[in-house]
Design a protein around this nucleic acid. Structure first.
Lengths: 388, 388
DNA sequence: ATTCAATTCTTGACGAAGTTAATTACTGCT
DNA sequence: AGCAGTAATTAACTTCGTCAAGAATTGAAT
């Protein structure tokens, strides 16, 4: 139906470079990749013929002076579409994206059950709803990515363990493929988001970076040498259980002093309520109060930011990433500068030597971004040779 | 003089497999590497002709039943020798090893200066002393590895920064090459030790593992996907500054609660002296006292082991190594079970989920092992294609 | 003893993927 | 118009590995 285009390393290199680094001339690709320009010409041709890439008319001279102007290669984003769905224990969030993982439509679907059959059939419904939004999607969308929190065996398409769904050893990729008729990739949700940043977000151009997600839990996706780190026992990036609090709070994991037990949504809310004396305060209201100048509440946020900053410093000391992207799904938490200042200060204080040179990027990300991450994994799967 | 034998990926794969996995038959190499057996035959030939590998007589049948018996390939360890030197601020420790990085001779040389010229000339003296030990060394030793603590630019052979020697931007590889006439590789000391474990020690067979060194500082070398992690700003593996102590002790790095400020040699000694009331106690004497049953001193050691265990758990949660090798240069500290029990307990308590499945290996390593690590880096450099 | 099956190793033809070097294509400047 | 300069293409060649066939070497069956 659609024969694989990326069969050789050169093909994968050329295509991903055009996809992720915007319009680039062939010589420039050759320079950046170390390939000969002849190889680039050959590798690019099948993609152009299949409609994935095209030559941009040379409008502006790149280099000043004489010479034949370059005709940069660029992606044709609407050549193929990808479906991405983030699965939580209470709802499905889905998007259809173009080749650049840019969301075109999105939809939700609440889950009234966490049974495998129930989730898969809700998924099938959501996907067909999404693909019905435009006839082009139905024609040119063949891949579906799923992002789930927990222990995912991507290579075999098996959900090894999901604490929230109470699933163990579920062959989710196969079930979803049967229910939707699409090629399905599954991946851990934080890793999926890391892939989206790696190819289409703030990780572009960095061989190594870390993505820290602040929310109910504190998660972390690590990209080292252009590859998302897997962890030999299925565990990696569990920054939430770095013990920065001394003996202080006990954590649900059995440990003590975990960041997550200080700065996760639940303990944060409890601390905010205790500080304000208002037992029914919401996080949003607390953010408002802090922004208005409530010192006690500000202090609570600062303590949480301090814990996260220390854990990030511990991580940076161990790995030395080029950048750290901090995301949070609570609107306003990152943006109002509530966290930012303390986060930077605590990170800088604990980062060792040159590790402090690592750039911190605070980037609020909406719920849709998680679904986008799932689509990004499907895209990467299709155009990479890694696990093939 | 000695033309490079490892020109192709297949050659590197075959040779390193024989070198690190002991005698192996060609078919077995093919099976493990994914190469065709024809490719193995072709790749192995130059190494056999040059005297680096040889066929072992098939003494024992490997597989039961019929068939032509395998003639396994094995390394000829004395085909070439390697020199490795660990440089500290007060002495040089050097070894000559065979191809398996097995030390054959060793020698020390105290340093009365930390000036670049002084160290390089002492190095030249030590190397010529070592190579004089056997005429074969002089004939068949062409490479020297140097291990130094601090920020090393291995690719360019430049010592970027050494806190103990007070060096900045020293082109050490070039200087040492001029002084000794050998091909010189330089690398960070902890990474060097990690390389030795990766190829010739307890890391063999693991695609990812961590090496934790307990001593004056607490260091860590990380191997991910068969590669030693570098860190984008030159920093990686700084486990010593993971803040597990809460606000407690202030560290020389400017942070608070660092493991190193609790379990490094200096703070450990201070704590032991305070606990015993004996202001002139040595670490060795303290170990003896603890072993004899002194509760206060035991408590101090347990607190240090706890801190290290927590930091190791933080590291394992972040990166999910297959194994963790813990080494220490204080004799008896690891071996008497003083640390071991508490280390295991604290690690297990704080390791998240499957990260606790990671095996902990306590391996006392003598000072010579550090010099061996330097030689191992030189060996790896010669038979790998990575940075070439 | 001879044949046969099983396994290891070797050999030479072939193929895929990239390189080098020459050629063509297109521009601005004189 | 001619020329210098850069971009892209083309064709011949190199390299590295696979494939398929056969040689080598053993144990077991006839």
């Amino acid at each position: 139906m659609h024969p694989r285009l990326t069969t050789t390393p050169a093909a994968a290199t050329v295509f991903t470079m055009v996809l992720t680094q915007g319009p680039v001339s062939r010589v420039e690709i050759a320079r950046r990749s170390g390939l000969s320009s002849a190889a680039v010409t050959k590798a690019a041709r099948p993609f152009i013929e299949a409609g994935y890439l095209e030559e941009l008319a040379a409008t502006e001279r790149t280099a000043p002076g004489a010479g034949r102007p370059a005709s940069p290669l660029t992606i044709r984003p609407d050549r193929e579409f990808f479906c991405g769905v983030k699965i939580t224990h209470e709802e499905l969030i889905g998007v259809v994206t173009d080749l650049r993982a840019e969301p075109l439509v999105s939809a939700h679907r609440p889950l009234d059950t966490t049974s495998v059959e129930g989730v898969v059939s809700a998924l099938a419904g959501l996907v067909s709803e999404l693909l019905a939004a435009d006839p082009a999607y139905g024609e040119r969308c063949h891949a579906l990515g799923l992002a789930v929190s927990g222990d995912v065996d991507k290579a075999h398409g098996v959900m090894r363990y999901s604490p929230f769904l109470h699933w163990r050893q579920v062959p989710l990729a196969r079930l979803a493929a049967e229910a939707t008729g699409l090629t399905v990739t599954i991946e851990n949700d934080v890793k999926s988001l890391a892939v989206a940043e790696q190819w289409f977000g703030d990780g572009v151009g960095a061989a190594s970076f870390a993505l820290v997600t602040v929310g109910v839990g504190i998660g972390c996706g690590l990209v080292v040498n252009d590859r998302v780190m897997a962890g030999s026992h299925g565990v990696a990036g569990e920054i939430g259980h770095v013990p920065v609090g001394g003996d202080e709070p006990e954590c649900h994991c059995g440990g003590r002093g975990c960041v997550e037990a200080i700065a996760g949504t639940a303990p944060l809310l409890a601390a905010v309520r205790a500080a304000s004396g208002d037992g029914s305060l919401t996080v949003e209201a607390a953010i408002g109060a802090a922004h208005a100048g409530d010192a006690a509440v500000r202090e609570v946020f600062a303590r949480a930011a301090h814990a996260i900053g220390l854990a990030m410093a511990a991580m940076a000391n161990l790995f030395g990433p080029e950048r750290i992207i901090v995301t949070g799904d609570v609107p306003g938490l990152l943006s109002y500068g509530l966290f930012e200042e303390q986060l930077n200060r605590s990170f800088a204080a604990q980062a060792f030597g040159a590790a402090a040179d690592c750039r911190l990027l605070l980037r609020p990300r909406s719920f849709e971004q998680w679904a986008r991450g799932a689509a990004a994994v499907a895209i990467q799967q299709q155009f990479t040779l890694d696990g093939v």
